[in-house]
Nucleic acid binder design. Structure first.
Length: 481
RNA sequence: UGGGGUGUAGCGCAGUUUGGUAGCGCACGUGGUUUGGGACCAUGGGGUCGCAAGUUCGAGUCUUGUCACCCCAACCA
């Protein structure tokens, strides 16, 4: 037996602290989340990875319904002319849209784009649906795929095709639309906190970083293990921009024809990448119980011995009855192999059941988030005790991530301090004059960008940390994915 | 689009300098012994060496062309 080889197993995955991007790529592939697709930048989401997305969908959908939204579906193909209607929008997206120009050998009279986002086609429909103030608000969400032909790609974080949800709402008043924008941002924040065990920073994007066509863009920003920021979701206040471009008007109570005020908001499969990079460690993936496709894995030990298989089946039955997503791994592999396999795949709880356990009336349990430590739980009421355990893991994972985030936000008052904070893998919270020049300077000097402006705008200084001019906003700077 | 690198079995690689039967580790099949932190023994299967021309008695190896992918900058949910 090659014991050294066995112990060095985890080194098959790149060193997380020294080579974070490589570690990420290794984990994503070795844990059977994805394969690379044949077309550059596309990915095949394998069943285990898709299971995470299904849980995300389920939890988000519940929240959307609770806030009055309904699901609908709009076409994949959009006439190119639609994209041209909103000036900023086309400028932002044209370079990265895939165009359909031919069917067979025949050239199309009008080019089609494969949707990079659905504002245009949805607005086209809204202009037909909306006549009167009685038709408002329209609160629609779509689960779909979109295509953006980015130059460089990475599984989940930036792929040519990705899955997402996009909410598109139309309102009678500016106030109502603005409230909706913030409401959905807060839905995302709560979802990340409670379901993904991932703390995020909410706030408004700078003019430079906002969505093409929006009046204001708000984002949730998450901190990855290496101190880089990941924009995990966005909520846009579109104002009347698209309403004017697509002629979406309603007749108000006062008899005046008015433009609607709109919002759009979305999160993508990028969230899966965020989970990996926030919770993962040197052993691989660690999934928060609420999104884990498998919450507990049952491993029979010495299954050839009498009674073991039966005890495991009984155990699985009890756990299923308690509503736990459980998997019985009765494959013909050595136990140690399976321990590592499931740890790498991030299953929150491992339950070992062998002859010694059966004799003692217990099972041996290991938590993924506290690797290596085993303890026993009595076999009776196992459903209830594992359920509690999963809840504890969920909240412990959040606490740990939250502490990390808090300890790595540095208030800075000068360009020099900003650079130091970034090099220490921190987010820098600074006062800013609001001028794009300062954003560019930071980008050139430190390859970092403004992330967002928190709602708490209580100033920490009077002058801009970059140029020393009069400070207008408090804003986070960070390197980003 | 600029700079660097790599293409050999499912994965990771050696072999190329100096041309001479296609190799190694892991994974996979079968039989047996095992099973509480990646087991062992035996025995098998799997390759047009990225592609195309050329030189040669003979090319994974030399020449020319070509394609693909990866990393670093620029672009982005």
């Amino acid at each position: 037996m090659d014991k050294n080889n066995a112990k060095n197993f985890v080194k098959e995955i790149a060193d997380i602290d020294n080579d974070f991007p490589q570690w990420y790529t290794d984990v994503v592939r070795k844990t059977e989340l994805v394969d690379y697709g044949p077309v550059k930048g596309t990915m095949v989401i394998r069943p285990y990875g898709y299971g995470i997305w299904e849980n995300i969908q389920k939890e988000l959908d519940t929240r959307f319904k609770d806030t009055g939204h309904v699901n609908a579906y709009f076409p994949l193909f959009i006439p190119y002319s639609y994209l041209l209607k909103e000036a900023e929008h086309v400028e932002g997206f044209a370079p990265e849209v895939a165009l359909v120009t031919h069917v067979g050998d025949e050239e199309l009279a009008e080019k089609l784009v494969v949707r990079p986002t659905s504002e245009t086609i949805i607005c086209d429909m809204y202009s037909k649906w909306i006549q009167s103030w009685r038709d408002l608000p329209i609160l629609v969400n779509q689960w779909a795929n979109v295509v953006r032909w980015e130059k460089t790609t990475r599984p989940f974080l930036r792929t040519t095709e990705f899955l997402w949800q996009e909410g598109h709402t139309a309102h009678a008043t500016e106030k109502e639309a603005q409230d909706e924008t913030i409401k959905m941002l807060n839905v995302y924040e709560e979802f990340c906190r409670n379901i993904l065990a991932m703390p995020v920073l909410t706030g408004r994007k700078s003019e430079k970083e906002k969505f093409a066509g929006a009046v204001a863009t708000y984002s949730i920003e998450a901190m990855m293990r290496d101190g880089k920021s990941l924009q995990a979701g966005t909520s846009h206040y579109l104002g009347e921009n698209f309403a004017k471009a697509f002629d979406i008007k309603y007749l108000d109570k006062d008899g005046v024809l008015k433009y609607v005020h709109q919002t759009s908001w979305g999160v993508t499969t990028r969230l899966i990448g965020a989970i990996i990079m926030v919770h993962g460690d040197e052993r691989g993936l660690a999934l928060p119980p609420k999104v884990a496709p498998i919450q507990a894995v049952v491993l029979p030990i010495a299954s050839f011995k009498p009674g073991v298989n039966k005890a495991c089946e009984k155990l699985v039955k009890a756990l299923k009855k308690a509503g736990i997503r459980v998997y019985l791994d009765d494959r013909d592999q050595s136990p140690g192999w399976k321990f590592n396999e499931w740890e790498m795949k991030g299953v929150p709880v491992r339950i070992e059941c062998g002859p010694r356990d059966i004799e003692a009336g217990v099972v041996t349990v290991a938590r993924r988030d506290q690797a290596g430590q085993k303890f026993t739980l009595p076999i009776d009421k196992i459903g209830k005790s594992i359920k509690e355990l999963l809840n504890n893991i969920q909240s412990d994972m959040y606490t740990k991530a939250k502490d990390t985030l808090n300890s790595r936000i540095k208030e800075v008052y000068s360009t020099a301090e900003l650079g130091v904070a970034l090099d220490e893998q921190c987010f820098a919270l600074a006062m800013w004059c609001g001028d794009e020049k300062c954003e560019l300077e930071v980008k050139t000097k430190f390859s970092a960008t403004t992330r967002n402006m928190p709602f708490d705008q209580k100033p920490i200084a009077k002058t801009c940390a970059i140029c020393g001019g009069k400070a207008k906003y408090k804003i986070y700077f960070a390197r980003a994915y």
